[in-house]
């Protein structure tokens, strides 16, 4: 090791680090190759990933073939083959939950994209108070889903709720004549409305980033070519924002496929099982009924569904980006 006094002013940062490395450690790592050192750096992360992601996944797959119940650890665990999967796929309640999830997923994404893009397009215009409006619009997504669920519950209250009051004001119908959370027909829409209210700003922000990434000279060229606004929108704006929009759809799709907190706060899955989404159903099976084996099978099915759909979607997204 060099004497610190011998260190010259021209030494690099790497040299300095080498000099400061304790002698014992320096001896140990002197014999290591670059590859070995690289492994030392990424090793902890890989171990952590294996411990918190891969091992639970493999364990869940194993449990899905058993009758294990987490609340009965002393009971013998029996291998049941594909019985859990068979029961799940032939259970009408599973399909009802999947239908409720599909309804929620489709309509929330539809409205969020439609409104989010429109808001982004409007906000992108230069006008007074632009920043203030942006801040106001993004406020809902800053709130906790539990808080949003609770206050929308009050808003939907048939006797004193503001939502019913507004509907009454516009339609003249008596406010207590309809129940957003209690009606089988309205409850699925009530959760769509709340999720749209909360997460449209997120889609708007992504679209805004897309809109602002379009160089002005393209529009200027279009104007010189006498392209109409309509034509500019369809041939410049939309194609160039599309990758951003698709990214927003991917994020919201994955998030809403596993939606839990907001809907539990709002309806608890009711009335009956009308808004019992797949994740709520899964939680009931796993942590209320304690059918760990069965719910593991359900979790695997959901994982494969989401992973499969997301993979196809990402491929499509890459193709759009390549165009």
């Amino acid at each position: 090791m060099l004497d610190p006094a011998q260190v010259t002013m021209t030494e690099t940062t790497i040299d300095k680090a080498a000099h400061k490395t304790p002698v014992a450690m320096a001896r140990r790592i002197r014999g290591l190759s670059d590859r070995a050192i690289a492994w030392w750096f990424v090793g902890p992360t890989i171990i952590l990933l294996l411990a918190v992601n891969i091992f639970p996944l493999i364990w869940t797959i194993y449990l899905s073939f058993t009758n294990f119940k987490a609340n009965r650890p002393n009971r013998d665990i029996k291998y049941v083959g594909l019985r859990n999967y068979e029961r799940l796929l032939t259970d009408t309640d599973t399909w009802i939950a999947m239908q409720a999830t599909a309804h929620f997923l489709f309509w929330t994404i539809f409205f969020q994209v439609l409104i989010g893009f429109t808001l982004a397009w409007l906000i992108n215009k230069k006008f007074k108070g632009n920043d203030l409006w942006t801040t106001i619009i993004v406020l809902p997504m800053m709130l906790s889903p539990a808080v949003v669920g609770n206050f929308w519950k009050f808003l939907y209250q048939p006797q004193i709720g503001f939502f019913n009051y507004v509907v009454t004001w516009f339609t003249g119908a008596e406010s207590s004549s309809f129940e957003m959370l209690g009606s089988v027909n309205l409850a699925p829409w009530s959760i769509v409305i709340v999720d749209t209210w909360m997460w449209t700003p997120f889609v708007m922000l992504i679209c805004l980033a897309g809109l602002r990434s379009i160089p002005d000279y393209i529009y200027e060229a279009a104007v010189i070519d006498r392209a109409s606004k309509w034509r500019q929108f369809w041939t410049i704006t939309l194609p160039m924002v599309l990758p951003f929009l698709m990214l927003a759809i991917l994020f919201r799709g994955i998030e809403n496929f596993k939606m839990f907190d907001l809907v539990v706060q709002l309806t608890g899955g009711g009335p009956g099982s009308t808004t019992e989404l797949a994740s709520i159903n899964l939680k009931r099976e796993a942590f209320e009924k304690w059918r760990t084996g069965y719910s593991s099978a359900f979790a695997i099915i959901l994982f494969v569904t989401v992973f499969g759909l997301a993979s196809i979607y990402v491929k499509a997204l890459n193709k759009v980006k390549e165009r």
């Binding site: 309640d93 009711g270 009956g272």
Partner: peptide
């Protein structure tokens, strides 16, 4: 717990959700 959740579902489906 399993017995209770099943009853919660069936009777809520009938009474509240028609």
């Amino acid at each position: 717990a399993e017995l209770l959740i099943a009853m919660q579902k069936r009777v809520h489906d009938y009474v509240v959700a028609d």
